[in-house]
Computed example of a mutant assay.
Amino acid sequence: MASIPPNQTLYIRNLNDKIQKEVLKHALYGLCIAYGRVLDIVALKTMKMRGQAFVAFDDITAATAALRQLNGRRIFGRPLQVEYALSKSNVVAQNDGSYRFNEPHKHMSAVERKRITDESSEEDDIGPAPPATNEDYEATRDNGDDEVSPSSTLFITNLPDNISIDVLAGLFQKYAGFQEVRPVPGKRNMAFVEYATVDSASAARNVLNGFKLSADQPMRVAFSR
């Protein structure tokens, strides 16, 4: 089989299909943004697309760097299988002017069209995780939170045991001022997240407190004492 020529879109397989789509897309974004501007991520939860995703970069250099560094890297307990997509993604075609608006799947290979056809309505844009509901917040908040003054450091608890630092960083670095994630030695379900300012930390906390990294495990985000 002929090798696939380098292009701006990567095809990723062997993803853990038990992970929520929003969490998966945040994690992929966090991993890929280190290599260049990410234009789009398509990760569907249908039968045909389970465990697979497409990531479109702004240029081939970024896509190539991501492929070399991420192929074989473990995320949510599985090693990624990363290769170039068979053809350019729609968002890349729109950027270079070759997109046909009356033929939305023209720039996909026959295999990719089969995967995506009639399923594109399930796609959503990369963006912040949805705010926690009142129910989620009340289930995870600590009565002592109100006594802790806001700070630039967040204390994260109730994390799944299989969560990685890279995935956690992918969630939190979407908010301005992100600096680092620090694991708690001997505590796989806890971590600290450092921001440059109190306002940045507050913005991340307001959105991600109660965000579910698994179906029944809302993450708790509090200010560090």
Rank of each mutant, 00 (worst) to 15 (best):
M1H: 07
M1N: 05
A2Y: 05
P5C: 02
P5E: 04
P6A: 12
Q8M: 14
T9N: 14
N14G: 05
L15F: 13
K18L: 15
L24S: 10
L24A: 11
K25A: 13
H26Y: 12
H26E: 15
G30L: 10
L31C: 12
C32L: 12
C32A: 13
A34P: 02
A34L: 14
A34H: 15
R37L: 14
R37I: 13
V38A: 07
V38D: 08
L39G: 05
L39Q: 11
I41R: 08
T46S: 09
M47L: 06
K48Y: 04
K48S: 12
M49T: 13
Q52C: 13
Q52S: 12
F54Q: 06
A56N: 13
F57E: 04
F57G: 00
I60F: 11
I60R: 13
A65R: 14
A65P: 03
L67K: 15
L67Q: 14
Q69K: 13
N71G: 11
R74L: 08
R74K: 13
F76Q: 07
F76P: 07
F76H: 07
G77F: 06
V82C: 11
S87N: 14
K88R: 04
S89Q: 02
V91M: 09
V92C: 07
A93T: 03
A93P: 01
N95F: 09
Y99I: 08
Y99K: 05
R100E: 07
E103P: 01
E103D: 11
H105M: 15
K106T: 02
E112I: 07
I116W: 15
D118R: 10
S121C: 02
E123A: 15
E123N: 14
D124T: 14
D124I: 13
D125H: 10
I126Y: 13
G127E: 07
A129Y: 03
A129F: 06
P130S: 07
A132H: 02
T133Q: 06
E135V: 03
E135A: 11
E135F: 00
E138A: 09
T140N: 11
G144W: 15
D145R: 01
S149A: 15
S152Q: 11
F155V: 00
T157C: 00
T157P: 00
T157W: 00
L159I: 05
L159P: 01
L159A: 02
N162M: 03
N162I: 02
I163S: 01
S164I: 01
I165E: 12
Q173A: 03
Q173F: 04
Q173G: 01
K174A: 08
K174G: 11
Y175R: 10
A176C: 01
F178V: 03
V181P: 00
V184I: 14
K187V: 05
R188H: 07
N189D: 10
A191P: 00
F192H: 03
V193K: 01
E194P: 00
E194I: 02
E194G: 00
T197H: 05
D199A: 10
A201R: 01
A201N: 00
N206S: 11
V207S: 04
L208H: 04
N209L: 04
G210N: 07
G210Y: 12
L213H: 05
L213S: 06
D216W: 07
Q217D: 08
V221E: 05
V221P: 02
F223P: 02
S224F: 14
R225G: 04
